[in-house]
Design a protein around this nucleic acid. Structure first.
Length: 570
RNA sequence: CGGGGAGUAGCGCAGUCUGGUAGCGCGUUUGGUUCGGGACCAAAAGGUCGCGGGUUCGAAUCCCACCUCCCCGACCA
């Protein structure tokens, strides 16, 4: 491909809209163009990288025995009513009406459609297990699209679904997908770490996310250097010795704390550390009020609380609802004597001398014992932070930021029960299918590669996802000898399956060098009259400081060997 | 949805306070000189100043409403 025919336009300045490196670089390198908030066009250059990631995903899915299918993005709402997710996905699902006034949905994911498909397709245990996958556009009406492809309203996802006869059998499918994911991300040149994760609105009982470590990542990941425990902050657990206020100091007594509503205000007003204050928060679990209590210096983790309660929607109660549920003014709510269920974080275990809201404006209670004075159920519901103890080995946990590029779920029978998707076992008895689902954000993966692999000059593509492997830079586009030698090299490389971009622009060398670094070709070959007079090209790998002179006749073989090494070794 | 910021040429920005019909750099086109890390000279194309009202002799600029984009947040009491 010739540069002058390729529609590649690079930008010298960072577009004002972009915040993080990968987003800036993809715009500057001319891979993406913005259409609107969370909506992007792929240019020919950008699409080449996207297609390469897709190709790797396809190869590994096929190798793992999954079958490629294609499901409609436009779906009838009825399927979502069957699963019960029509309300649960709520505002994040695009809805529209067709001409007959039927409500349709632009699929944010495809559990419903694929379960409906399998319900009709699978009759016998002899057909199982089966894994299907597709690479397709998903639509989500994100609260706030962000960072280019990282969180977009329309994006490309690989989604796979497994169907098995039993939970044990489903474990094998899960492992096959998990292992395929490890290979996919490695081949994309990504360092992606599997971590234990929350299942969110997808549901199920067990899941791992594949996280690319990057400071711009939207998720916190707790990691134990000693035993290897890794988990998303949404789900991470901790080991705790319980409260440090274990000595009973008397019976609960009211203390006037005028104007003190927050934990810090209450602590200051009563002259105690914030850890001795108990924070009380009212939530609505599927509409039912509950009270969650944690130590004053920790946060309630809504994902963990939701999972503990087994409810599908958990939201903080608004002021009015909270006051009505507890019968106390907002800002003084506490767990003593309330009529709604109370869930106490395990960090409060053994607490016999703590302070809580008195359910009376301007007052707190001190000398409260959780076990003696409150009817509460113990639960692990606090957000784990850096320095907390590993739940397995007790070592301090570290925290890093991560980009979620993949997520694998054990779903069990959550969807197949709702859809009555059954098969006949070897005794002719109907059984419910056991399901798993597995997603990779393909467009997000492309950007994650850039986020993880760049320098001040531009992108550093791994050979496996580079839009072109080689930038063949014509230093003297007007010299017939130089052009001829370059064209011969291009043909020789292309015959080896190497993607070459011939920079035939009438630009000064500096411009071409800068663009080569910005776009980030793994290799750059300079074809110029001076070197050619010595029978050589100049060859340089992206990131190397110096170029090497290489005899014209050896160049194609050397480069294609290097690239094939990288592709095989990745 | 709440808070903050911003919409002026393809990209980055000035001009807005103090109204007088639009400018700079990069990029693009043409010609010339250059030619190893984003050259120089000359000429040129390109903008209903986000949209709609209003005030005014006159609005990018003042007033009112709206739209869009970016950032922070998600009722942690």
């Amino acid at each position: 491909m010739r540069w002058t025919r390729s529609l590649i336009t690079t930008l010298r300045d960072d577009p004002q809209e972009a915040e993080i490196a990968s987003h800036k670089l993809m715009l500057r390198a001319g891979m993406l163009r913005k259409v609107g908030g969370g909506l992007y066009s792929f240019t020919p250059l950008g699409l080449r990288a996207l297609r390469k990631v897709e190709k790797i995903v396809r190869e590994e899915m096929d190798a793992a025995g999954a079958l490629e299918i294609l499901l409609p993005a436009l779906q009838p709402i009825e399927l979502w009513e069957t699963s019960g997710r029509a309300s649960q996905m709520g505002a994040s699902m695009f809805r529209l009406k067709d001409r007959a006034d039927r409500t349709m949905v632009l699929g944010p994911t495809h559990e419903e459609v694929v379960t409906d498909y399998m319900l009709h397709e699978i009759n016998s245990y002899r057909q199982l297990p089966v894994i299907v996958y597709q690479i397709q556009t998903k639509f989500r009406d994100e609260i706030r699209p962000r960072f280019g492809l990282m969180r977009a309203k329309e994006f490309i996802m690989k989604d796979a679904y497994s169907f098995d006869t039993s939970l044990d059998a489903a474990d094998a499918s899960y492992k096959a997908m998990y292992d395929a994911y490890v290979r996919i991300f490695r081949r994309c040149g990504l360092e992606a770490h599997p971590v234990e994760a929350d299942t969110g609105t997808i549901g199920g009982n067990h899941s791992h996310e594949f996280m690319v470590l990057a400071p711009s990542g939207e998720d916190g990941i707790l990691h134990c250097a000693k035993c290897g425990y890794s988990a998303n902050q949404e789900r991470a657990e901790r080991r705790t010795a319980g409260s440090r206020y274990t000595t009973k100091a008397g019976s609960p007594e009211e203390v006037a704390t005028p104007g003190a509503h927050s934990v810090d205000e209450a602590a200051a007003s009563m002259g105690v550390p914030s850890t001795q204050i108990v924070k009380s928060l009212v939530y609505l679990a599927d509409g039912k009020p509950v009270l969650a209590i944690v130590e004053g210096n920790t946060e309630v983790n809504e994902c963990k609380l939701r999972r503990f309660l087994g409810c599908s929607i958990l939201v903080p109660a608004d002021i009015e609802t909270a006051e009505k549920a507890v019968g106390a003014p907002f800002g003084s709510i506490g767990p003593v004597g309330v009529k709604i269920p109370v869930y106490a974080d395990i960090g409060l275990k053994g607490a016999r001398d703590v302070c809580v809201g008195a359910n009376k404006d301007g007052f707190h209670l001190r000398h409260v014992s959780i076990e003696d004075d409150i009817k509460a159920e113990w639960a692990d519901i606090a957000t784990v932070v850096e320095g907390d103890s590993c739940p397995h080995c007790g070592e301090p946990l570290s925290i890093e930021r991560g980009i979620e590029v993949g997520h694998v779920f054990k779903l069990g029978t959550k969807y197949t029960e709702k859809f009555k998707a059954t098969y006949l076992d070897d005794k002719g008895v109907p059984q419910t299918l056991v399901m798993g689902c597995y997603g990779i954000g393909v467009t997000r993966t492309v950007q994650a590669v850039v986020e993880q692999s760049h320098d001040d000059d531009g992108i550093i593509w791994p050979a496996s996802v580079a839009p072109y492997h080689v930038d063949l830079l014509l230093l003297d586009p007007n010299s017939p000898e130089v052009v001829k030698a370059a064209e011969e090299l291009e043909s020789a490389l292309e015959a080896q399956g190497i993607d070459v971009l011939l920079d035939d622009r009438a630009e000064r060398p500096g411009v071409k060098f800068k663009d080569a670094d910005l776009i980030g070709f793994p290799f750059r070959v300079v074809a110029g009259a001076k070197a050619l007079a010595k029978g050589c090209f100049e060859v340089r790998a992206r990131g190397d400081k110096e170029s090497a002179l290489m005899p014209v006749g050896d160049t194609a073989a050397w480069i294609s060997a290097r690239i094939k090494e990288k592709l095989a070794g990745a």
